[in-house]
Design a protein around this nucleic acid. Structure first.
Lengths: 358, 358
DNA sequence: CATTGATATGAATCCTACG
DNA sequence: ACGTAGGATTCATATCAAT
């Protein structure tokens, strides 16, 4: 299957040609069906140019629904079982999209709010200024596994759990593509920083990311930058040209964030193997963080205190008066009159194993 | 029709008894159909108590849809033509609600995001922390008029246009109703500050506000406080008791904000009537803000410059090189060697008229 | 009384690899 | 597919006890 290309043509027709379960991640920014009528004039009388493109014209809601069912059904078919899909919209269309996706069996993981510090104001003072758009992030079905680089997102959010509300400026300045006439090339170009969160949170290095409404290629730019592959679908040849120019300029970044190295799980190590490798001594005494003796190793896999034989986790929980706790983080051994955590031992063991393999 | 009472019984059945076009504003906080399964344990093993109420149980999405179609249809019937409706939900249900409301012909004015600075975290690190809920604000149909106290909301937002994203803390502390056991009375009590924005933005003093899922009565509390009437529907008698206790304690506030006095429009006055009342002189010269002569009054309704006869608005626009402009704010006359705006004259004229009426 | 620290809790679609 | 065991996972705020 070809990668890192932009296919020119009708979205649904091209989606139909793609093989089943072949895509890791989909980002879709479909027409919003804005249903605007007449001209909106700024104070002073010049015309506000929002979205007036032919691609945003539909006869009615039913027509729009039908279109969305078609492309979303194909997306579900071509998505890998452990893939996920992002769809962006605004109040005009996001309720159509969400409803249809639920009906198709997609399982909503989050609705993410993109709040804009610099939205287009409501010129006429007739409503609240529409200062956000909504993204739907869905797994293929209720029980499907999916990639979520939780720790990466936490790290990038000042070491706090990332929330469902993202504050990101709209695409302006140098990032915004402009034609020779100085006018914006695409009426709804998305900011790269928005796509960066999408890509970093829900894909891995080398993944294939599909964007069925590629436009001027923000998805391709970010995918390439972070070492993912992309596949674009776009009807408009001018957009494709502009997108390709942008993408060709991008240099690939590879670091612990793009490679999602923060997501690496602690090594699976047994107490027995730690004893065998002389990281622990048979029947060795275990202490808590404060250096208080709690229990001792017992027959390899268990620990024993004054009354019971338990797993390290159950024993830790018992002495913390909780129903469960991670024993690796709770227990310490004494080495050279200093406390040393079991957790650090398993990492050291893992490193030794890795060296032996080389 | 009775007001300021809480009706006990089935939501849809009671809605059916209410007369057509009798309600100014609806605020609906329906069950969300959370679809949780099993227990969610906190670190340490104690159970998280979210929504486990019977009222949030439905067989499936189709069952939930059917329920929502029923109560939303009745809401549309009883809403006045110039009324509006607010509905709150989260990603589990808001796409059902939005889709159904669009199908019923409601016209979405805004989807407002309630972002929470203090949400329940995602304990297991499996998704983005769900830190918001969504409110839909809709008019009865596409062409319906509706109340929006734009200037009031702007005033309350540090004189900036209020946006579609509201940052409000969840309901905790003294505001949160607790039983004798110290546990929350209602699992989803909404903060009063949320309802305050709803009521102040989209209703007038004396309006009748319906809440078909009254719960512990936050809507009633805020409605009474701001001089609106309310009508509650609630199945649970305990909730009704608690709500009534809260409401009885409330004292009514009446000021320029609750009375929406900032919304008063400039008086509709003709140039002719200003001349007739001697606020203007026939053929009087008009100046711009800088005191530069622009044109003079011409036959009562128009103004004339060196080349054209136009309305004051078109003339202002012409001299500003715009396609339109408010002439009342652009033009000044000379009185006692000082400039005086046409705008101030129409207010003075209006005041004189009002005094004569008394 | 002010400050610090421990504990409780809020609309939640909340684990996963292995046998 | 299903059960089981191992073990990974939270932020803001209110309350209350201790200093």
């Amino acid at each position: 299957m070809q990668k890192d290309i932009i296919l020119n043509g009708d979205c649904v027709e091209i989606l139909k040609t793609l093989p089943n379960k072949s895509i890791n991640l989909i980002f879709a920014d479909p027409p919003y069906f804005m249903q605007t009528e007449g001209d909106l004039l700024r104070v002073g009388g010049d015309k506000f140019r929002g979205v007036e493109d032919e691609w945003d014209k539909f006869n009615n809601l039913a027509h729009y629904d039908e279109f969305c069912k078609a492309w979303l059904s194909e997306c579900k078919r071509i998505l890998k079982d452990n893939g996920s899909i992002w769809v962006i919209g605004s109040f005009q269309n996001i309720f159509r999209l969400g409803y249809i996706m639920q009906d198709l069996g997609f399982w909503i993981l989050n609705d993410v709010i993109w709040t804009k510090p610099n939205p287009v104001p409501n010129f006429k003072g007739t409503r609240f200024c529409n200062a956000h758009e909504t993204l739907l992030w869905c797994a293929k079905d209720k029980n499907a596994k999916y990639t979520f680089n939780y720790k990466t997102m936490k790290y990038l959010n000042n070491n706090k759990q990332e929330k469902s509300v993202w504050n990101i400026g709209i695409c302006i300045g140098n990032e915004r593509l402009k034609g020779d006439d100085g006018k914006k090339v695409h009426s709804t170009q998305k900011p790269e920083s928005l796509l960066e969160k999408v890509v970093l949170s829900s894909s891995k290095e080398g993944d294939l990311i599909l964007d069925p409404f590629f436009g001027t290629g923000t998805t391709g730019v970010v995918a390439k930058k972070f070492g993912r592959h992309f596949l674009g679908i776009e009807q408009n040849k001018l957009y494709i040209q502009e997108a390709q120019k942008r993408i060709d300029k991008i240099e690939i970044i590879s670091n612990k964030i793009t490679r999602a190295e923060l997501e690496i799980k602690p090594p699976k190590v047994s107490l027995k193997s730690l004893i065998k490798a002389s990281f622990l001594i048979s029947n060795e005494r275990l202490y808590n963080k404060a250096g208080v003796y709690i229990c001792h190793l017992y027959e390899g896999e268990k620990v024993r205190d004054e009354s019971e034989i338990l797993s390290i986790h159950k024993m830790a929980a018992k002495h913390l008066n909780k129903s469960n706790h991670n024993g690796w983080n709770y227990f310490y051994i004494m080495r050279d009159s200093k406390l040393k955590s079991l957790d650090s031992l398993r990492y050291e063991y893992q490193m030794q194993i890795n060296k032996l393999k080389l």
